[in-house]
Amino acid sequence: MTNGKKALITGIMGFTGQYMAAELSAAGYQVFGFGSSPAQKSPNYIQVDLTNLAEVKQAVERVSPDVVIHLAAIAFVGHADPNAFYDVNLCGSRNLLQALCESAKTPEAVLVASSANVYGNNTPGRLAESTLARPANDYAVSKLAMEYMASLFYSKLPIIITRPFNYTGVGQAENFLIPKIVKHFRQRLPVIELGNIDVWRDFSDVRDVTSRYRALLHSSAFGQVVNVASGKMHSLREVISLCEELTGHKIDIEVNPQFVRPNEIKELCGDISLLDKLTCDNSAKIPLRDTLKWMLEAKS
Rank of each mutant, 00 (worst) to 15 (best):
M149I: 00
F153R: 07
G92P: 02
I161L: 13
A104H: 13
L144F: 06
T131C: 03
L157P: 09
V112F: 12
P124Q: 06
S115I: 02
Y139C: 07
L152F: 11
A136G: 12
E102P: 00
S93N: 15
M149T: 03
E147N: 12
S142F: 08
A133W: 09
L90Q: 10
V110C: 12
R134A: 14
Y148L: 13
S93E: 05
M146K: 03
K105H: 14
R94Q: 15
S155T: 12
Y148W: 12
Y86N: 11
N117K: 03
Q98I: 13
P124H: 03
L157S: 09
Y119F: 14
L132T: 15
P124W: 02
A113P: 00
V118M: 01
Y119S: 02
P124R: 02
L96C: 08
K156S: 12
A109N: 00
L152M: 11
S155P: 01
V110P: 01
A133E: 14
A145E: 12
N95M: 12
S93Q: 14
V110E: 01
L132H: 10
L111N: 02
V88S: 07
Y167Q: 11
K143H: 07
E102L: 08
T162C: 10
A150S: 15
P135C: 10
R134V: 10
A116I: 09
S151K: 15
R126N: 11
N122M: 08
L100M: 04
S155H: 14
G92V: 11
I160Q: 02
N122I: 06
T131W: 00
E108I: 07
T106F: 01
P158K: 08
A109Y: 04
E147R: 04
T106P: 01
C91M: 15
A109C: 10
P135I: 13
E102R: 04
